[in-house]
Amino acid sequence: MSHRATMPVPEPPFAPMPADPSGAGGSMGVSVEGLRVFRGKKQVLANISCNIPEGRITGLLGPSGSGKTTFMRALVGVQTITAGTLTVLGRPAGDPRNRHDVGYVTQAPSVYPDLSVLDNLRYFASVHGGSREDAGAVLTAVGLADLATRKASKLSGGQFSRVSLACALVGKPKLLVLDEPTVGLDPVLRAELWGQFSAMAAEGTTLLISSHVMEEAGHCDSLLLLRGGMLLAQLTPAQLRQRGDTDDLELAFLRLIRAAEADAAGSEAAS
């Protein structure tokens, strides 16, 4: 993994904090500079620059429609971008070599409903060049071993989305991009999943997890706050609480938005 150590760490123009706000000062899994995405005439992402620290959980938070999914799609290389530089694991986003190292779990679970859980995993293991044993091991890790022979379409919503997650884990990704993995899950399952994410980060996996539920931000090491296609801030949950002057992360985010809007209105009035 020497390519990560030698990677230059660009100065993030938008992030008011050190590149890695969690304080470790480690290397970056992803660095983004001046990312813009237009869909037709509509600007979906406006000049985003940020860094995602390696081996940590970075939360991508913002209301729905703020550009979270587009940002993630750009990182995994399936989104046509208008401008900007995206360096993912030391290579340009979408580089064919990254396909071995980047796992992407879409918001809607994308597995084959007419296959059994194990067959789904085996297939995704094989397209990652993995083995049948990998499939079994991952199944145990996400707690689906008992359901291995069950058809995916017969699973509950929560189990179904865990199969989708497992299908990404089976490729042993160095960077895991998860689009709202906990949406619609019960609190127990959510806590379990966040536990798993922390364990994976501890083993060195870089995670980018989107959510529109601010209370989940507390589980992350670093936060990217997105609104209307703009990156409001990159900071830690503690810094967010401090800047919003409240322990309530949702309220803190709201106050940040209000402050940013007031700034924008102020500068407009001045000009």
Partner: peptide
């Protein structure tokens, strides 16, 4: 879309 993000 998912398959096209894998090495396949």
């Amino acid at each position: 879309e998912r398959l096209l993000t894998t090495p396949v």
